[in-house]
Design a protein around this nucleic acid. Structure first.
Length: 534
RNA sequence: GAUUCCGUAGCUCAGCUGGUAGAGCAUCUGACUUUUAAUCAGAGGGUCUUGGGUUCGAGUCCCAACGGAAUCACCA
């Protein structure tokens, strides 16, 4: 789509030309801003001895022209502030007719309060800083008698909001708050971990062998070595290698990539914190997570009580702790301790939970748990001690046969953070990998691969260690009250709009052009072969 | 991947049993020097997502494609 086809856009280009014809530098290099709008408002005092002079800058989000005086609302990173612009004070007042909603302007002036009581800037100079060349869908706002903010014509089209997040952010400033909170969550965690002396590290995203989680990977190809590569599905194995190497506490805040479904709790790339601490076990880590989450929740929310759509979450320590078996008994009335796969299958059938003959005991327990227990765990709950086959990288329980030392923190019915005492006995790890290989052979394409280098690392010796993962996206959802992961990721994965792309980029529709030839190896192979097979 | 719903002006949305496309805001012109969802008077703006079909006639009915949302399945 050629934007000039839109007459509103064409008009704005004309206004830009008119300004430039009048000698205005439409895209200046800087502006000597002195205050955020919020700071300017905060510093203003009625009846102050001296006028408070300010220079503010931001996007114009409302214009009310009244002939030889005008009121603009300016929006910057901190909020909105009204600007009073008066013909008598501004030599370039006539230019204001060339200003539009969406333009970014700078204003020098003094703070005052209008007759109707709104703290404003009385402009002494006004300057275009960047012309907005497309119509911006800025909603109108009013404040009712109770002081509630009422938004009219809210820009709410989710597709456009996600595809063109810059518009969403520019026009719906409350969206920026969600992402500020996300940043606060991350910086608070980082500070907490740094204060304890753990080392923040970066490990490769591109793996020659993926592992550390049960998931399908993205595949890619390294031209230089002509080998297949995978985007990492977890950070786990490389971080443990660093523990082997002698670091006693390492963490990474990074992206994982899983080639699986997309819905309101899953994005193909998502952010995890993973932490490994030597000489500690999963019980120690449990205490640490409680403490860290307390700091994070307080920093972001100001209180340990977090309001959600359905009620309130209480992050006061200690969180509830219960074993998986206890919780299954609590919510289903079945005691499954010591049951074999057949007995468990009978229980599942009784509970009308679909299980098939290929499922082992661990898988059946997992099914029962996630169907009948997990959705009910609203308040923060540590679910302890999983079946061994569910967690192939966790250490066997010191006293409970058939289980591993692990827990999963569930909040609001969602898995938020897994942890275990890390398996460091290479003999056991080899066996567990072998079990995974069997599952893989039986058709489970999410089963883990055998990582011989990792086994070798364990032979070199990894001290006892506790490992933790925290899903940053989901934690952000909880603490910002967002129900979709897309609302806590700036640019969530969206299906490309093929037809529009083809119309705008003719090359994409031309099979002989370089851009198409570079599309994928498999397609290129077909083209090089001459006739395309479809 | 399955099912249901949705796609109309820059934005938010109407549009009945099929009969030349509507509103508010935004935009444009004019009035207005403390307004605030400013107001008042006038004007312009649409390949109704795309492609087929039925029909004298399709925004409306049918089929398909594209995109989105919700629910389910898989997964964290």
């Amino acid at each position: 789509m050629n934007t000039f086809e839109n007459d509103q856009v064409a008009r704005r280009y004309e206004e830009l030309h008119e300004l430039e014809a009048d000698g205005v530098i439409a895209y200046p290099y800087s502006f000597p801003k002195t205050f955020d709008t919020a700071a300017a408002r905060a510093l203003f005092q009625d009846n102050a001895a001296e006028r408070l002079q300010v220079a503010v800058a931001g996007r114009v989000v409302a214009i009310r022209r009244m002939g030889k005086a005008s009121f603009f609302h300016l929006q910057d990173d901190s909020g909105r502030l009204q600007i009073y612009l008066k013909n008598d004070d501004l030599p370039n007042y006539d230019h204001l007719k060339l200003y539009d909603i969406g333009d970014i302007i700078g204003v020098h002036g003094f703070m005052f309060r209008t007759r109707t009581g709104e703290v404003s800037v009385h402009a002494q100079t006004v300057q275009m800083l960047t012309k907005c060349l497309v119509p911006l869908p800025v909603p109108k706002e009013e404040t009712d008698e109770q002081g509630n903010r009422i938004v009219h014509d809210q820009f709410a089209d989710k597709e456009l909001r996600y595809r063109q997040r810059y518009l969403d952010l520019a026009v719906n400033p409350q969206v920026r708050d969600t992402f500020r909170k996300r940043a606060k969550i991350i910086t608070t965690m980082r500070r907490y971990l740094d204060q304890r002396g753990y080392l923040e590290v970066e490990t490769p995203v591109l793996h020659t062998m993926y592992g550390g989680a049960a998931a399908r990977p993205f595949s890619t190809h390294l031209n230089a070595l002509s080998i297949p590569l995978y985007l990492r599905i977890s950070l786990e194995l490389n971080l443990k290698r660093l523990i082997v190497g002698g670091f006693e506490g390492v963490y990474e805040l990074g992206k994982n990539f899983r080639n699986e479904g997309i819905d309101k709790t899953h994005n193909p790339e998502f952010t995890m914190l993973e932490l490994y601490v030597a000489y500690k076990d999963y019980l120690w880590m449990l205490e640490m997570v409680e403490e860290m989450l307390n700091e994070v929740v307080l920093a972001v929310n100001g209180s340990l009580h977090v309001k959600t759509a359905g009620g309130e979450l209480n992050f006061t320590r200690p969180f509830r702790r219960a074993t998986m078996h206890e919780l299954i008994y609590e919510y289903t009335g079945h005691r499954i301790d010591g049951m074999d796969a057949d007995a468990l299958r009978a229980v599942a059938n009784q509970l009308h939970i679909g299980v098939d003959a290929t499922m082992g005991a661990g898988k059946i327990i997992d099914e029962i748990f996630s169907e009948r227990v997990q959705p009910h765990l609203i308040q923060p709950t540590f679910v302890m001690d999983f079946p061994t086959e569910m967690v192939p990288l966790a250490k066997r329980h010191r006293s409970k046969p058939g289980l591993v030392e692990s827990w999963e923190l569930i909040v609001n019915g969602q898995e938020l953070a897994p942890c275990f005492s890390e398996l460091n006995d290479p003999r056991d790890q080899r066996e567990r990998f072998a079990e995974q290989a069997k599952l893989r052979a039986a058709g489970d394409d999410e089963a883990m691969l055998i990582d011989n280098d990792f086994l070798y690392a364990l032979e070199v010796g990894m001290p006892p260690a506790a490992g933790l993962g925290v899903g940053i996206d989901r934690l952000t959802m909880l603490l910002t009250g967002q129900e979709s992961i897309r609302d806590v990721i700036f640019f969530p994965m969206m299906r490309p709009e093929e037809k529009r792309a083809a119309a705008e980029n003719p090359d994409a529709a031309d099979p002989t052009s370089p851009s198409e030839a570079a599309a994928t190896d498999s397609e290129r192979g077909e083209w090089e072969g001459g006739d395309r097979v479809e």
